[in-house]
Design a protein around this nucleic acid. Structure first.
Lengths: 259, 259
DNA sequence: TCGCCGCCTTGATGTGGATCAACTCGCCTC
DNA sequence: GAGGCGAGTTGATCCACATCAAGGCGGCGA
């Protein structure tokens, strides 16, 4: 329950908190608490009022949306990222359900104190606006990805993005069940299997959670990744700093800090 | 080119600017200019650097995304709304193309000065964060709408939303060409026609741009609108103020202030 | 007034993806 | 080690939606 110094440092170094005054940051974490949740825990239900800003410090979590008994995954979050920020800022009800995928450590910061901190510390308010801008742009990418691409194209681009985020080697590990990936990419599990089968022609081989890209150039040619949809291809690597936090948000995949 | 007092007042009363200090506001519009554009003008191309925050004061505009020679409409904007805010905050390239649909009056505010104003005026920075939160949530609704509903369901919900936004009468006027609507709803024009035909069973009759809902209850039962997707059904109408700006963002339709 | 040109509609056909059902395989329990 | 999951794959079928091809209709310019 009490935060370790290490965890505090990790949170402090998030873009969201980096430019906040020390006093602001102290106030924020003063009333916050770190909690461990087992896999599969629902942290927050769609439609519920949101009392906390959540920070995933360790583990894996998922944001999903529901309608008419259908369910879809909107994002998979990995550490360290914040979520539910927009609802906190507006003090509104959650539009998405948040669930842990793995056992996770989650920091919960009072929403009320976040709103207060924004009013008192312009630096923090700016950071919040920047974070939200990145989230927003991540979602724009997601919508374009959904509306403009077919299923295998979405998968191909997801794989290419995962590849770079896992170091660029030819083989990568799917970070979670295929069923979750299918939902994230907007298809059924059955269809994800078939999409993988299609990509075999482009040198994609699958073995359990392990995917190897044997012909990355061929795959790239079919995937046609685009910097205005797929955030893994950065403009030039020059601007690594602040404003680039957007780059953590991937259209098809793990959206860094979503809400 | 010089702004009329009326226009200034309209802009000033936007949620984005309401809580800004007078001095901040004056600085912002000092370097701004109002310009008229004919219908079909491209204001900003996908991928271009963004130098201005745009405010649609009069007319109708559209935001679209492209990939691989395909095009899709992400939002239709009506006055008064701002757009391209997220890109301005991050000083990043545009992810969407902005086009006028009708002859429009557009106010352009220096992006640089917006970023400066945020740092100097915490009230304004908070307003920007709130605006972005609303935009973000609008997009979450859009994604859910897209991934969870079928074409006729999307159309039905669009019509119900338009109905309330046009005063609640049984007949409403489509604000733009059907082809744009089709793209916005994620289908082809041909399919939009057929979707309208489907809805005939639920009392929807179409005559040119004029749509009449003869059996709103039946239509509602098939559309299954949901407050977590369709923002036209507000929680309680109690909170009309600030934080509720989000309500202007409609999942399927005219997203109030998008970027 | 005629004729052209978009927008919209309608029909015929094709296809991507959903659905339903069966089967495998690894894992966990007993 | 037998049984029983639940995840994943595979195949058969179905359906929603896209695509292709005409045709109607209204607006606008010559």
């Amino acid at each position: 329950m009490p935060m370790r110094r290490v965890d505090i440092e990790r949170v402090r170094s998030l873009p969201l908190f980096q430019s906040a005054a020390q006093r602001t940051f102290d106030n924020l974490i003063a009333g916050a608490f770190l909690q461990k949740f087992p896999a599969g825990t629902t942290l927050l239900m769609e439609g519920d009022p949101v009392d906390f800003l959540y920070v995933l410090v360790e583990g894996l979590a998922e944001l999903q949306g529901t309608w008419n008994d259908k369910e879809t995954t909107l994002a998979v979050l990995r550490p360290v990222s914040t979520f539910i920020l927009a609802a906190v800022v507006l003090d509104a009800d959650a539009l998405m359900t948040a669930r842990t995928i793995e056992r996770s450590d989650i920091l919960m910061i009072s929403g009320e104190s976040v709103r207060r901190a924004m009013k008192e510390d312009a630096g923090f308010a700016v950071a919040v606006a920047e974070e939200l801008s990145g989230c927003y742009r991540g979602l724009v990418r997601t919508v374009k990805n959904q509306k403009l691409r077919g299923a295998s194209e979405r998968l191909a681009n997801y794989l290419l993005a995962e590849q770079v985020s896992q170091g660029g080697g030819p083989t990568l590990i799917l970070p979670h069940e295929k069923r979750v990936l299918a939902s994230l990419l907007g298809m059924t599990p059955e269809n994800l299997s078939r999409a993988f089968a299609n990509l075999a022609d482009y040198g994609v081989t699958v073995s359990g959670p392990e995917v190897t890209l044997l012909r990355p150039i061929a795959l790239d040619r079919m995937a046609k990744p685009d910097r205005l949809i797929d955030s893994h291809l950065l403009p030039s690597a020059a601007r690594v700093g602040m404003a680039d936090r957007e780059c953590r948000a991937s259209a098809a995949g793990t959206i860094g800090a979503l809400n």
